[in-house]
Design a protein around this nucleic acid. Sequence first.
DNA 1: CACATTAGTGAACAAGTGTACACATACAGA
DNA 2: TCTGTATGTGTACACTTGTTCACTAATGTG
Lengths: 193, 193
Amino acid sequence: MGAALALVGKGRHFASLGIREVTRQAGVVPTSFYRHFRNMDDLGLQLVDELGLVLRRMMREARANVLQSDKLIEESVAIFVAHAQTNRNFFMFMAQGLAGESRAVQEGIRSEMRFFASELANDLRRLRLMDHLSDADLDLTCDLVVRTVAFSLTDLLSVSPDDDYQVGQIRKRTSRFLQMIFVGAGHWQSDGA
Amino acid sequence: MGAALALVGKGRHFASLGIREVTRQAGVVPTSFYRHFRNMDDLGLQLVDELGLVLRRMMREARANVLQSDKLIEESVAIFVAHAQTNRNFFMFMAQGLAGESRAVQEGIRSEMRFFASELANDLRRLRLMDHLSDADLDLTCDLVVRTVAFSLTDLLSVSPDDDYQVGQIRKRTSRFLQMIFVGAGHWQSDGA
DNA sequence: CACATTAGTGAACAAGTGTACACATACAGA
DNA sequence: TCTGTATGTGTACACTTGTTCACTAATGTG
């Protein structure tokens, strides 16, 4: 799995990886592959599972660092960007998988995103922010937030992690996106819809 | 190019296509490939160019049908969904390319999206909607709108085009996303930022 | 210690791959 | 009608691919 991630990190697309290629990168003989996975799709699914762990770790850290802050959005985005950099390969795999070849992987990633959005909704409810929104509208908002952040991932992964200027630009732009969404959510129902 | 699109439409990922595979689908001998393209990346780039045409056609139709409507957002989303269905393969290619293997294709698609967003901004300016927004904030809004619609593409392409119920759900959800964004844009600056 | 399980090895095979080359055909413009 | 250009064909070559099979080394539990 590490070998596959490494190749993805080198710019290869997961869908174009072959068993021999992965085992070669892993420094192991091709047949060893079958000791662990039935095929590449299987490997992909297990990567999705690990991705889930990465996302949960990120959520935990966000919850810990953000609660007492007055700049909720900026802080959260910063944590997201930081995690996206330290787990670059995982997030590359995620970005690829959303429109990937394996329906199962696609569905898996989508489901992780839904989970993420629902956790976000819970947090907002618990913090009594957005208290005027119905449950459905809160879900809508969080879904939109998660999508927006996920799309920013694409921007983030297409620039060098060392290019602090560009990374900063993306962070600022993403924050503004989220602010605009929350402004919209704040005035929802009163004049919207 | 049609053959490559057909394979993408069948669920294959563009990055995993081979020259022989494409020519086979095209009903032509492998060597003929080189008469038209230098390699698969080249083919991808030419597909991006054609994708640009498809998007422009869609914009033209949106402009024609939407101007005199009071339900701007719903109409636009409906037109988008319709085009995404009739040009399903093109849009699949687009969704794949955003996180694809070829940096050039990636950049090409991103640039088409930027163009689309800037055209949208021009239209909104011309219609004197969102007149209170600075140019930069209008661009921000339109970028966010285009991203949101692009992400909905992923949802749309993952359900059967004949599943009217699911397609309808996606259309409604996308419309609500955009409404929320525009509510946010409407109250921007006054209380946001 | 014995033994079952897990992970890795090496050889083999049929099938598929990218690309080069010389050749054939259609057809537009002189 | 001749000729150059664009497109397609067939053959060939050296690799790479997925998967199989029988075999070996390590590992932890009885």
